[in-house]
């Protein structure tokens, strides 16, 4: 939409967007891994509950900026709604330190747990070519040895100024998918710390944005790296204040396309290990 309007949001707003996006990536990955753990273990499996505790802390950080836990309608055309609150930097840095240590603990735990490894290693192997053919993106694709990340491929916001690695794994099995997710949590912590260091002061909204937006007729497509993969938005305008067409391309629909070839001839117990490691959010497919 901003691409359509030709607005460039100010730098501080872009940093705030990156920070909130990475924070929600952390919480989403924590939740995704936790939910997956309930699938291969049970609802009383302790690491699952510990992850939820960590996630609550991250959510507190998000909430202090945006005022909502999950659906924060926070981004405005040309900027963001609120500035960062006082003491946000210290609180976030503390939380990130804790999250990073905990995540390392989880990785160690899963490496040393032989039952977990038996369940996960070599299960649901998705080859790179197959994954690309099925349109999978995000952590499952990166677990299949394909460094494909919208933050690197098509840098949006200020990601080109930031230093981060694109996490990949060679194996392409369920275990790799979960590990990619855990590593990305640590990487996101690193990104946020950089942002908090570099963030300049300044306005959070671009100048001269009208109350009622009437963009020029035309089309725009914008893609971002969602928590679960490539998320694309298409907007077409005919010059009035209402868009002609809005289309969102979610990543999860492609995950479900990838499941039938993976699930052919496996045990029922493996179904949850494969489908769970995809971290597929069913209600996203529904729209």
């Amino acid at each position: 939409m901003e691409r359509l309007l030709g607005i460039e949001p100010p730098e501080r707003a872009q940093y705030i967007r990156i920070i909130t996006q990475e924070l929600s990536r952390i919480q989403s990955h924590l939740l995704g891994t936790a939910e997956f753990l309930t699938l291969i273990a049970s609802a009383v499996y302790s690491p699952f509950l510990y992850m939820i505790i960590d996630r609550e802390d991250v959510l507190t950080c998000i909430e202090s900026v945006t005022g909502a836990r999950i659906n924060h309608s926070f981004v405005r055309f040309g900027g963001v709604r609120n500035d960062l609150p006082d003491g946000f930097k210290d609180m976030t840095l503390d939380t990130l330190k804790m999250v990073r240590e905990k995540t390392k603990d989880y990785k160690e735990l899963f490496l040393s747990d032989s039952i977990y490894r038996r369940r996960m290693e070599g299960i649901g192997v998705l080859s790179p070519a197959e994954a690309k053919r099925l349109g999978v993106s995000g952590p499952p694709l990166r677990a299949s040895d394909t460094p494909y990340d919208m933050r690197r491929e098509d840098p949006y916001l200020l990601y080109k100024d930031l230093d981060f690695d694109v996490i990949t794994r060679k194996e392409g099995d369920s275990k790799a998918r979960v590990e990619v997710r855990l590593d990305e949590i640590i990487e996101s912590c690193y990104i946020i710390e950089q942002c908090l260091d570099q963030i300049p002061s300044g306005p959070i909204m671009a100048e001269g944005i009208p109350k009622k937006i009437k963009p020029e007729p035309g089309e725009a497509y914008y893609r971002v790296e969602d928590h679960r993969g490539e998320m694309g938005f298409f907007v077409a305008s005919d010059g009035t204040d209402k868009p002609v067409k809005v289309k969102a391309r979610g990543p999860v629909y492609a995950y479900f396309q990838a499941l039938p070839p993976l699930l052919e001839g496996v045990y029922i117990a493996d179904v949850v290990a494969i489908a769970g490691s995809m971290d597929a959010c069913t209600s996203e497919v529904d729209r």
């Binding site: 009383v44 747990d113 039952i115 045990y267």
Partner: peptide, 12 residues
């Protein structure tokens, strides 16, 4: 033990 171990697959 119940709260700290994941579940085996039946063939395992």
């Amino acid at each position: 033990i119940r709260v700290s171990l994941p579940r085996f697959r039946i063939d395992q």
